[in-house]
Design a protein around this nucleic acid. Structure first.
Lengths: 334, 334
DNA sequence: TTGAAAGCGCTAACAT
DNA sequence: ATGTTAGCGCTTTCAA
């Protein structure tokens, strides 16, 4: 009779009961070909009888492999990450790995703790979505470990990465706004600890300068929550030079901004065009529907997982970066 | 000089270099009082010199404790879970535990894999947010393991749990709608695999029946994405009996429904009142602002973590359930 | 206060 | 095809 899995049963017990050695049990467990069918059957019967499950800790200690991957996420509240995580999960699973998520809150010491898991072989490798500034701060601790960067990366760090060309993406978005006739384009940016924020800032400035437009006062926010976008836009609207367009580096920020525009008695896109970034699901529900710069979220996740697993298989291969294509999704808000 | 942490360094190496035994190194590592300050200092110096970090796998194997907690989340896309996770994280951290998240996609076999981690002591225990139907399906595998249920629970399963009284909450919401003069109150429900969906359904029916109102055709959705709410509401609006109120079991569904109402040329709340459930952040950004049934998300998470850690400390204590209070948050949509 | 040694559960040489 | 045995890195008696 199969009883519920019992932790206290070990290879030893199975071996004794089946009248074989622990080595044979181990071979059965690991699908080795070197076991007579009859022996295998006997061992498997005993395993089933006891509901035996090998102790992963001991196995990992021995093999120095866990088939677990870690993903460090700075902010679970942002739906942007949900789809990336799904991409990671899908690819990893297809290769026999499992994924564990860590909520680092974009906090360096938290990240360090989770990297310790990799160091100690509780996980084979990690995918890091944390700000590049944190990646820098932790680079000593992360040295020699198998990890890859996703979305946030430093091209010069010699760590495999996948992301998009944020500067170009922002440039394209702002150029589009200019093409629509906007002259006073404001930027609502995120935390400067993120490289994407700095890069999009550059793209924004480049587009304005190319068009001979003066840049407006920039707003940096502390987080990507709707309220931050709302607050930043409200201030912008009160300022001396009224924006006729707002480019936000995140859809969540943009949604907050749209609300602020309307609360100021103005209309989107008639008085102020609003453009977001990421293409999260709620963008299509908003009224007006949010125009945005789409990132290939799922593919970003899948690629990160692939990069990591490749690296695990061949840690010495030379590392490179992959830039995926962004896309302007023009709906109603801009 | 402190060099970057090296995995290949072991207690052995530290012991040799410091001229002590491995036992002494272990004592230093574990803050044992039985070490002469001078010895301790010497050992600590060597540890620092090598940037030594103990191998958690080996330690866990020995102590049968990992100080890791697992949280199984059915759907990362729903912001509802983000705040719960933060609550879990905050409490766990305060007690010296770390939290790992698993995206089960409300899938039983995925859940099983992660429960294996607990069985094998890669984690000390788990918090399960998956549908109670999955909890049931996996009950054999989960037997004897330390875990608690959060939001989804079976009061009779003898597993510690925390949640709210979903039936009462739905009853309150619908009763409020009735008080506002609504006579045709539709329900947009979620997947019946979730107990909360079945319980809220009961509450909905109870409120209607108490008021002598006929219940309307119910819509069950396959997921909580906005589109599902949109689609369900669109059908409702096309039906013979027009709703003057829609109660959705999730804010995401309600937001989709609001959009559908407006796309049908109707106004919220004038023609159709819309009431959601959960109180996720975006509710305040919507126009009109979403009225909803608030769950104490953070407290739900904190309580779940507390229950689990209590159970870890005293696995034999008798288990009980905790029901937290919900609250009607009346804004503009209803 | 410290050390020697056993052992957690498993895998993998090596031997047969 | 199977068994013997060493050892992964750590903690923890037990002895000194």
């Amino acid at each position: 009779m199969t009883e519920s899995a019992n932790l206290s049963v070990s290879v030893q017990d199975i071996a004794e009961r089946a009248g074989v050695s622990t080595a044979t049990v181990s071979r059965v467990l690991n699908q080795s070909e070197l076991v007579r069918p009859k022996t295998r059957a006997k061992v498997e019967a005993v395993i089933a009888e006891f509901g035996y499950q090998p102790n992963a800790l001991a196995r990992n200690l021995r093999t120095a492999e866990s088939r677990m991957l870690l993903t460090m996420v700075p902010d679970f509240g942002n739906p942007f990450y949900a789809e990336i995580v799904r991409g990671i999960d899908a690819y990893a699973r297809s290769k026999g790995y499992h994924v564990l998520l860590c909520d680092t809150g974009a906090n360096a010491s938290e990240e360090g703790t989770y990297f310790d898991m990799v160091r100690h072989r509780l996980a084979d490798g990690a995918i890091c979505l944390d700000p590049d500034s944190i990646q820098h701060a932790m680079s000593a601790e992360m040295k020699g470990l198998n990890w890859v960067a996703c979305c946030e990366y430093d091209p010069d760090a010699n760590i495999p990465y996948v992301g998009i060309d944020n500067e170009k993406a922002a440039f394209d978005a702002v150029t589009y706004l200019i093409g629509q006739g906007c002259k006073n384009i404001a930027l609502i940016n995120s935390d400067e600890r993120y490289r994407y924020a700095r890069d999009r800032n550059k793209g924004y400035e480049a587009a304005l300068s190319k068009a001979g437009l003066k840049k407006m006062q920039q707003k940096f926010t502390r987080g990507l929550e709707f309220e931050n976008g709302y607050r930043a836009a409200t201030e912008l609207l009160k300022g001396g030079r009224k924006p006729d367009a707002i480019f936000a580096v995140s859809d969540t920020l943009a949604i907050g901004a749209m609300r602020a525009v309307r609360d100021a008695g103005l209309s989107v896109p008639h008085d102020v065009r609003v453009m977001g970034f990421d293409n999260i699901p709620i963008g299509t529900i908003m009224e007006p529907q949010l125009s945005t710069v789409a990132q290939p979220m799922r593919e970003l996740g899948e690629t990160a997982a692939r990069l990591l697993i490749d690296r695990l298989r061949n840690p010495l291969a030379k590392t490179g970066g992959i830039l995926l294509k962004h896309e302007l999704v023009l709906r109603q808000s801009a």
